[in-house]
């Protein structure tokens, strides 16, 4: 069970601003999904290794050879705000 209070914390961890109304709306829906996920507890997974990757691949590398980068113009072309070649973000504090 997640409470509206938990949701505030999860919202912050997710960097999603949630209004009071959002929290009201989401809490029961998220809980119904979590209830459904409770199904997982019934599976016996003792001694079973997790599958992080579906294929048993390893050791895929690039060689240390440079390739062309984007131009500065291309790199900045999608940035809503920029200044002197930098991407401009809000103040930190």
């Amino acid at each position: 069970m997640i409470t509206k209070k938990d949701l505030e914390h999860i919202g912050w961890l997710s960097r999603l601003e949630l209004s009071e109304e959002d929290r009201e709306k989401y809490t029961p829906k998220l809980n119904s999904v979590l209830d459904y996920f409770g199904e997982l507890d019934k599976a016996d997974t003792g001694g079973v290794e997790p599958s992080y990757h579906v294929m048993p691949m390893s050791n895929v590398f690039r060689e240390d050879v440079p390739i062309a980068s984007l131009s500065q113009e291309e790199a900045l072309s999608n940035a809503p705000k920029n200044q002197d070649g930098f991407i401009k973000a809000p103040r930190m504090m």
Binding site: Q83, D84, K88, R91, M92
Partner: peptide, 15 residues
């Protein structure tokens, strides 16, 4: 940062 991190009005990013 313009000046110090706590006073700067914006943040410039170079990747």
């Amino acid at each position: 940062h313009e000046g110090t991190i706590d006073k700067s009005k914006y943040t410039l990013i170079d990747y």
